[in-house]
């Protein structure tokens, strides 16, 4: 009992419990069947135990995703807490997989679990990394695309945390626009 108490009290609780999901593209299965919950955690120490146990994103095969979402939110547009929202999207050039991808993803995870966005952290749903041959993508998902103040604050802080230059522009896209797009490009609702 003392050991259990020590284990609990020595760890640093996070504001939220988070769920890590893994997606592996198997064309013989449905999209949902390819999505698996890996585990949930709610302390800083348990986050690191998980992070050091799983593959770096850059080592995953094309077609795989990791998603980190607040407990209770599924990593898909259809979830009630996502469907009115959108994402700040970071698109990477192919060569950045070897130079920046893992650093950007870890920074994204730390922004989420550390509640970096202050009161606007309430607006955060999660983050997704897509490993793709044509170029990897990282995105932070927020719950309400119409919440201009929250969305733009999150975008500015996120860009700064990634260390992106002022010359780089990142865009926020509403999921509703992504879901109904006709071409390959979704219009940006906001940019920073």
């Amino acid at each position: 009992r003392e050991a259990l108490a020590a284990e609990i009290w020595d760890k640093h609780p996070l504001q939220n419990r988070w769920a890590l999901w893994f997606f592996k593209n198997d064309k013989s299965k449905t999209w949902q069947a390819n999505l698996r919950l890996v585990t949930k955690f709610s302390t800083a120490e348990d986050f690191w135990a998980l992070y050091s146990h799983i593959q770096l994103a850059s080592k995953l095969t094309s077609g795989c995703d990791y998603s980190l979402f607040k407990d209770g939110i599924e990593p898909m547009w259809e979830d009630n807490r996502n469907k009115r929202g959108g994402r700040w999207l970071i698109t990477l050039a192919k060569q950045q997989r070897h130079t920046e991808l893992d650093r950007f993803w870890l920074e994204t995870l730390l922004c989420l679990i550390g509640e970096t966005f202050g009161p606007y952290s309430e607006d955060i749903c999660g983050a997704v990394i897509n490993i793709r041959a044509k170029g990897d993508k990282i995105a932070i998902w927020t719950r309400e695309a119409e919440n201009r103040d929250g969305v733009t604050h999150i975008g500015r802080v996120y860009k700064e945390r990634l260390g992106l230059s002022h010359k780089v522009v990142i865009g926020y896209q509403a999921h509703a626009d992504t879901a109904t797009k006709s071409g390959s490009l979704t219009k940006n609702k906001f940019v920073v």
Binding site: H12, P13, L14, Q15, A44, E45, F47, W48, E107, L110, I113, G114, E115, T116, G118, P119, S121, R161
Partner: peptide, 18 residues
């Protein structure tokens, strides 16, 4: 209520603690 906020430095230190 209060929000538990951890900066980058603190979280990185948690990584290295035994």
């Amino acid at each position: 209520g209060t929000r538990i906020i951890y900066d980058r430095k603190f979280l990185m230190e948690c990584r290295n603690s035994p």
